[in-house]
Nucleic acid binder design. Structure first.
Lengths: 141, 141
DNA sequence: CTACATTATGGGTATATACACGCATTATTA
DNA sequence: TAATAATGCGTGTATATACCCATAATGTAG
């Protein structure tokens, strides 16, 4: 009976497809687009705790902890104990910084191509629509 | 250096958030929004093979096989061997049909609420933008 | 009709993701 | 200061997802 397609599935499908495109383009760098994003956030936040990084990434803490473990295994980040013995702060290694740097042009290649395709207005529209969609869900971050 | 947010991450984040909202709303039915979608497609395609269902869902065949196994374990679908002994066709069980039916109003509740929020034009815009974004990737389905 | 190619699927492996629960550490309050 | 609350993380469990390779079944060429 639902003759309308599901908004959620539409978004999931698009996100999956897009992820494949980004990942393929970024493959030479050795990291995926999600890892690229996480490295970027870590760099920007300069040694955030897991909680801070999770909040910034809008991901569950446990999810983030596991993602970080992968990056750690690959030698891209290290974690240290912060002032508070409960917290662990996350930092890029030299290899992590270099890997990120190498990935930037690859990321930029896909990203700018897609933005060109969308047009500036389309890009803004998309952002607004996604914000509208997700606004009711996370009003308090 | 990337002062622009990543389109892919934006989409992934929105999809994650939206999934949580749908799943929460549909929790009383016992199925998630992805399962709801899959049951719907199976019903529409009337006993599709794994390959057909994967194509319709725009998912990898192996992904779909595993998703189906979960539905099978929950007694919502059964698989039979088709004419061709290689293929397996997928069918809703009575429980599967009932579960889907029960889930429809829950799905509709979230969906219509979100569409109302987007507006008719916004909904169309979003669809067009997602199509534009993913068009280069899957031009041949 | 047999050797080879094609097809449909399964399994191994790996990441991404979330929720619920538990544990250790820190903060608060009595 | 001692008991209690709050906080930060980790783990268990489960789904969703994809890629690569193996295997069984079917189709095709010789």
């Amino acid at each position: 009976m639902p003759q309308e397609t599901c908004l959620c599935i539409d978004l999931r499908t698009a996100a999956n497809k897009l992820t494949q495109v980004y990942d393929q383009a970024m493959a030479p760098s050795g990291i995926s687009v999600t890892q690229f994003s996480q490295l970027h956030t870590i760099q920007t936040l300069q040694g955030p705790t897991l909680k801070e990084l999770a909040a910034a990434s809008q991901l569950d803490r446990s999810t983030l902890g596991r993602n970080i473990r992968v990056l750690e295994k690959q030698g891209l980040v290290v974690t240290k104990t912060g002032h508070d013995a409960r917290t662990r702060t996350i930092h890029l290694t030299a290899k992590g910084k270099q890997t990120f740097k190498n990935a930037v042009p690859l990321w930029l290649g896909v990203q700018s191509q897609l933005i060109e395709r969308l047009g500036i207005s389309g890009r803004g529209q998309l952002k607004d629509l996604l914000t509208t969609l997700t606004a009711p869900l996370a009003p308090n971050l």
